[in-house]
Nucleic acid binder design. Structure first.
Lengths: 134, 134
DNA sequence: CCTTGACTTAGAGTGCGCTCGAACTTGTAT
DNA sequence: ATACAAGTTCGAGCGCACTCTAAGTCAAGG
C-alpha cells in the first residue's frame, strides 16, 4: 500500500502521515521501490488506535511516549498499561465534566424555550426556570 | 471588584480577562477610577457560563456569536437557543465518541493486564483478549 | 512623600497540531 | 515515448487560544 492509499483508508492526509512519521508516531516506513513508502495493512490498526487516543484528547507528546514504548517491544507492556490507565482516568473525568455541562446547557435551553414572549434579559428566563424547578 | 480580584475568583488570568474583553467575549468594563476596570458580581455568572462552553469545546468564534446576540438583548433569545441546541448536539455526539473510545481503552488495558508472562508483542495480547471475548 | 504592588496599553511570542508550497523524482496508462 | 498523476524532501506558514513583555500609570499603607 502506498501513502495515498493509506491516506484514503485512514482519513489522514499524506502530509499528516509523513508528519507523523517524522515525529515518530508512525514507524519509519520501508521505501520499497527506492524512495516511495510501502505500507502493509497492520499499520491501519495502529493508526486507528492513534485516532482513538486523539479523539480522547491525548496530546501528541504522550502518544509519542506510548509509541516509543511500543517500539521497544513486549517488555514495556506494563508501562504502556499504566500509561493507558492514567489516560483512561482523565477521559472518565472529562466525560463527567461534559455531562455536568450538558445539564447546565439543558437548563439554559429550557429557560429560553418557554420565552416566546419578550423577556427582560436571558438571566430573567434562566431565573424563572430555576424557580420552576424548585 | 478590580481585575485582580476577578482573576482570583474565576481562575482566569488578568491577561486572559483583558484578552476576552478585547475580542468581545466580555463586555467593555467601566473604568471607574479613571483607567482601571471595575466589575460587579454579575460578570461572574457570564464567565462561568463561558467556562462551560469552553469545557464543552465551543470555539471562541462561536462563543463570540453568542456573546454578540446576548448583548443585542432579549429579542435574540430564540437565536441563542438555537445556537445552544446545536452545540448541545455536538457535545452529545462527542460524549458518545468518548465512551466508545473508552470501551476500546478498557479492552486494550484488559489485554495488557493479563500478560505478566512475556508476549510476542502488544497485538498478541490484544488478539488473545478478542478471542476471549467472543 | 514614598514605596510597593496592582493596574494600563499595544504588540510580540508561544505551543499545539497540523497544513501547505516549492522544486524535484518516480510510476503508470496510452 | 510521453504525459501526468502521485510520490519525495525540507522548510515555512497557519489557526487557535492564550501568554508574556515592555514601558509606563495609579492607589493605598507606612
Amino acid at each position: 500500500m502506498k501513502i495515498g492509499d493509506l491516506a484514503r483508508r485512514t482519513g489522514l492526509s499524506t502530509h499528516t502521515i509523513r508528519y507523523y512519521e517524522r515525529i515518530g508516531l508512525l514507524p519509519y516506513a520501508s521505501r520499497a521501490s527506492s524512495q516511495q513508502r510501502e505500507y502493509d495493512a497492520s499499520i491501519l490498526v495502529w493508526i486507528e488506535f492513534l485516532g482513538r487516543l486523539k479523539t480522547t484528547g491525548m496530546p501528541i507528546r504522550d502518544k509519542l511516549r506510548y509509541a516509543r514504548l511500543r517500539e521497544r517491544g513486549p517488555e514495556t507492556e506494563q508501562d504502556r498499561r499504566i500509561l493507558l490507565e492514567e489516560h483512561r482516568t482523565k477521559v472518565r473525568t472529562h466525560i463527567a465534566e461534559l455531562q455536568a455541562c450538558l445539564a447546565v446547557l439543558d437548563t439554559k435551553i429550557a429557560g429560553y424555550a418557554g420565552s416566546d414572549m419578550v423577556e427582560k434579559n436571558d438571566d430573567a428566563a434562566t431565573e424563572r426556570r430555576k424557580r420552576a424547578v424548585r
